[in-house]
């Protein structure tokens, strides 16, 4: 009983195991912590491998009509597995696995709602672009066929 009293007394002066999180700045994370995926448009060759490799589909490329692609990444859907970086042919240049911590989002912000809309928009953009390309190709082929056919007809 005396031992437990002594224990209780000494416990009062022990520092707590926990940290006062929002007030003490950032918690220590190891240097090779798997954090945010960083992207560099300069080095990207737009091979789409990261998009195919991503398990939760947190990377999506939007296809613009003029031919260039736009990278979009959702840090709240990402599971930080690093599969995209491993799939990237120019890893550590185009895609990097940083140790930066992602910002938390509250449920009220509904961060993923917009993203799911965006996923469909991006898919449609690519379908549209593919169809456009197909039509252009067909037109070209028709034009090429049309050219030699034209003089013959004359």
């Amino acid at each position: 009983m005396f031992r437990s009293l002594a224990n209780a007394w000494s416990n009062m002066f022990k520092p707590p195991h926990t940290v006062k999180y929002p007030f003490v700045g950032d918690v220590q994370v190891p240097s090779d912590y798997r954090g945010l995926i960083l992207y560099d448009v300069e080095h990207c060759i737009f091979c789409d491998r990261c998009e195919k490799a991503c398990p939760p589909k947190a990377i999506v490329f939007y296809q613009h009509d003029d031919g260039h692609k736009e990278y979009r990444y959702n840090p709240w859907l990402c599971i930080y597995c690093g599969e995209c970086v491993r799939a990237c042919p120019k890893a550590d240049e185009a895609l990097t696995h940083s140790s930066e911590k992602p910002n938390p989002a509250s449920k009220a912000e509904n961060v993923n709602d917009e993203w799911f809309v965006w996923q469909t928009v991006a898919r449609e953009s690519r379908e549209r672009y593919a169809e456009k390309k197909k039509a252009e190709k067909a037109e070209k082929r028709a034009a090429r066929k049309g050219e030699p056919a034209g003089p013959k007809g004359d």
Partner: peptide
């Protein structure tokens, strides 16, 4: 609380090895 506090360093080890605390992947 005592057991939970003693458990924490083990989770830190796993974080150091795999890069994440819970979902190691």
């Amino acid at each position: 609380m005592e057991v939970m506090a003693a458990r924490e360093p083990v989770m830190d080890l796993q974080e150091a090895i795999s890069g994440n605390r819970v979902q190691f992947d």
